[in-house]
Design a protein around this nucleic acid. Structure first.
Length: 410
RNA sequence: GCCGGGGUGGGGUAGUUGGUCAUCCUAGAGGAUUGUGGAUCCUCCGACCCGGGUUCGAAUCUCGGCCCCGGCCCCA
């Protein structure tokens, strides 16, 4: 039997309902903040991604050549494409731009819990606002979105300048290495690296920095940071807004294009892949030939959120199984149309089953049975049966519709 | 790419000193029951992940591959 490609998933109706439900929550919050949805191509020029992240990422992407010999790649993330679109289409739009997206991405990686080769991200990009207020709004939005899903998580906020300031005298390659050690809390590796550089004097302050959760202390450790005032304002806004977070100056993010504030979210009850959100301020547009616009954004790992949420009870919406005899079928079609026009999910027999069998099927798939036989066809009324209580009565169509509509959790 | 554990009808399962027609539950279709469901009974449908090897004979042993689950690496 043909199998689906490795790292991909099929979603049955129950699961799709749950996913759409959570996606809708995220979208609602983003909309309330003024973020409007955009959509970019599923695949782009390979160059878009290599310019952003280096040639090394080719190994982790789905890369192919089309019939015109173009080098293309399935998008491994969306931010680069959004910024490309901004440069192509919206450079002169009034700032700031508030955009969001919900889209699938592709990475050629080893699948494991919460990691798939096709996965969905819900992301947000705030373009053209280079202020503490912009940074704070982005984090607040992230917090509200995760809260809306109901996932249990921890939000960590940091700033790259603290660590950069401590290691600014090192070679860029060594800076990156030190940051990598700290990101992984690999203190042995850190010491080995510092020792080889003869810079053991940095060890204490670096470890103190990644361990402190206090802003004042962080400034004392890191020294003069140009963005001190802005970050203080950002944090002040978060506190004023009641955002729950912890400070963490060990966040390095993988990429060089992040410029200042960075933040990450981690879910509980996930395996090794427990990061569900990542973002920060960045400058990317100049790489693609645009102005050097400041941006701030984040992406939520939608599939991981779904894994962390576990089983979600499907929404309770009434379903009507329309049961009819052959004499009642013409009238039943009219009734079905009326129910559907009223927005009620209505299913009719397609198997040529008898009344009893139709009812048996309805009992598995519906909350109400509406029976149309010869008697109902002649009287114009309908017989409605509540399939969980077995109560049955014959009433006008309008009354039946009202009863179905009244169904729901109390 | 690396390490460990797995793969039997749609779902869940039994089945190794290799040996009749591969077990059971559930789901699905039909019937007993052509104006009232969930019970019961009967019938039907439907599987040993793929390929090579050993063997008279492989779900079972062996090798390779594919896929799944966890972890490592990586994580834009």
């Amino acid at each position: 039997m043909l199998q689906k490609p490795r790292g991909t998933r099929d979603f049955l109706p129950d699961e799709m309902e749950a996913r759409r439900h959570v996606e809708g929550k995220l979208r609602d919050v983003a909309r309330c903040y003024g973020y409007r949805e955009v959509c970019t191509p599923e695949f782009e020029d390979l160059e878009l991604f290599t310019m952003r992240s280096g040639e090394g990422i080719i190994e982790e992407m789905y890369v192919f050549e089309d019939k015109g010999g173009r080098k293309l790649a399935l998008r491994p993330e969306i931010t680069a494409a959004v910024i490309r679109m901004y440069i192509n289409e919206a450079k002169v739009a009034p700032k700031p731009l508030r955009w969001c997206y919900f889209a699938d991405c592709f990475r050629y990686e080893r699948p494991q819990k919460g990691r798939y080769r096709q996965f969905w991200q819900f992301g947000v990009e705030l373009i053209g606002a280079d202020t503490a207020a912009a940074d704070a709004e982005t984090i607040m939005l992230a917090s509200d979105m995760l809260n809306a899903t109901g996932v249990t998580y921890e939000l960590k906020v940091g700033h790259l300048s603290f660590m950069k300031n401590l290691v600014k005298d090192l070679e860029p390659a060594m800076q990156r290495r030190v940051r990598a050690h700290l990101d992984k809390k690999d203190y042995e590796g850190l010491n080995a690296t510092l020792e080889s550089l003869n810079r053991m004097d940095l060890a204490d302050s670096l470890t103190a920095l990644v361990n402190t959760r206090d802003l004042v202390e962080a400034f004392e450790i890191a020294g003069a940071i140009p963005e001190k005032e802005r970050f203080e304002q950002t944090i002040g806004s978060l506190d004023a807004a009641g955002v729950k977070y912890s400070l963490n100056f060990g966040i390095a993010r993988g990429l060089d294009y992040y410029t200042g504030m960075v933040f990450e979210g981690f879910a509980e009850n996930l395996g090794a892949e427990n990061q569900i959100l990542g973002g920060g301020t960045y400058r990317l547009a100049h790489l693609f030939g645009g102005d050097d616009v400041a941006s701030c954004g984040f992406a939520i790992g939608f599939d991981r959120v779904m894994v962390a949420l576990g089983d979600i009870l499907p929404a309770v919406v009434p379903v009507v199984g329309l049961v009819c005899t052959s004499e009642g079928r013409t009238r039943a079609l009219v009734v079905a149309k009326a129910l559907r026009d009223a927005g009620i999910r209505t299913e009719m027999d397609l198997m040529g089953r008898g009344l009893g069998a139709q009812l048996a099927h309805a009992s598995k798939t519906a909350n109400f049975a509406i029976v149309i036989g010869q008697r109902e066809a002649e009287s114009g009324q309908v017989t409605i049966k509540n399939l969980s209580t077995a109560e049955q009565k014959t009433v006008d169509l309008a009354a039946a519709i009202a009863e179905v509509r009244a169904f729901g959790p109390r």
